[in-house]
Structures are given as structure tokens and as C-alpha cells.
Design a protein around this nucleic acid. Sequence first.
DNA 1: TCATTAAATTGTT
DNA 2: AACAATTTAATGA
Length: 224
Amino acid sequence: MATAHDLVRTAIWARELAEDEIERARRGLSERQFAKGAYICHRGDRLDYWTGVITGLVKISAISRSGKAMTFAGVGPGGWFGEGSMLKDETRKYDLVALRDTSLAMLNKSTFLWLYENSKAFNRFLVRQLNERMGQFIATIEQDRILDPKARVARNLSWLFNPVLYPGTGGHIEITQEELGLLAGVSRPVANRSLQALEDEGLIRVEHERITVLDLSRLAVYEG
DNA sequence: TCATTAAATTGTT
DNA sequence: AACAATTTAATGA
């Protein structure tokens, strides 16, 4: 199993960092485990770490004023999140839930800010990441009321395959239909039917505890 | 290595 | 929500 220490070597944001910067990042990293269903952070809490998923799956969601649950993103192994709260010094504006047993790498705030101030490579990564999230966020807003369940499943799937946010995933991810249902905000049977329909349309291939994406570009803009 | 069983996931109703 | 079928994992011969 990969540890937080090893992770620095493979983390996407560390690829272009200088040796001394990597060493600095390594010292600021710690590791924490979360059981399936556990809250990593509630909305309004202060969480002074930039967080990366080593193993497992995390849902980032919020409750709208009307009381409706809304998923912003699912984050799988290799994904990092929370840079917004680091830079703005605010409490979290969303809930973080571990959808399955999850191991997280946590970079403390002072180290994060040091990299932010001193590393040009780290800043390049942050810009790419924030830009990518912006696109996803906009898609999320229209998803909530416009799209049918099948399209929501399709888009949530495409997020998990985003090559900028999760470069590790080589075409397929391991996720159960129940977990995908939790992410997309649909029941498991609906997730099941949606996946079968998407497979019929040649966009994905459904296997046991695993989904392979055949046409990511179409999946990302799927509207039914 | 193979067979059996238990547990988890998927497909339907 | 409940049930049946399928696949994986774990165990032990």
C-alpha cells in the first residue's frame, strides 16, 4: 500500500517540483484513515489541510437552501482538493464524506502556503486545477435541475475520468454501482439502468466493480 | 491447486 | 424495498 511519504513522488503536482520543494512537501504530509460513511469534514468546519486521496473515494457535496443535496464532485485515488479553502482562509463550504474506506494524504497549511509562495511549478499546477474545477462547477449547476438521472450518472462518471484532475486512471476505475448512485444522487437501481443504457450506446463498458470509459468526450457533454 | 462457502455486487421485480 | 443471480474472496483439504 502506498504511504503519504511515497505519494509525493507520484503526486501529479509534485512532478515538476524541484528536489528541495519535494522534500519540504514530504515533511508537511501526514496520513489519515476514514471508515466508509464517515464525515471527513462538515460544512462550516475548519480543515487546515490540503487533501489528497491515496485510496478510496470521497464525495464533495452541499445542501442547497431548498434542502436538496447536491454533489459537486467525486474524488478518487490521485485527486487533490481543498485549495480554495487554503487560499481564502475560510471554513469549508461543503461536506466531505468517505463513500468507502478511505486513506487520505494531508498537507498542512503552512507547507501549502510555502509552496504557493515559493514554487512556480506548484502555482502552474494550481492554476490548471482551479481552471478545471471551474468547468466542472459550471456543469454541476446546470445538472441539478436540467438533466435526467441517466445524464447525471454520465457526467459524474466523466468527472472521475478527468485526465487533468485524476491523471492516474488509465481508462477504467473501480467503483460499485451503489457508490456511483450516491455520487450522482440517484438510487442504485436507477444507476444500474443508466449504466446499461450508456453501455448500449457504446460510451462505456460495465464490468464487475469496474467501469471502463470508451468515449470520454461524449460522456462529458451527455444530455440524454 | 482445487472445491466449498461466505460476502459483496449486480440485475430485476 | 426485497429477491435472485453472479462474481469475488476466503478458507481448508
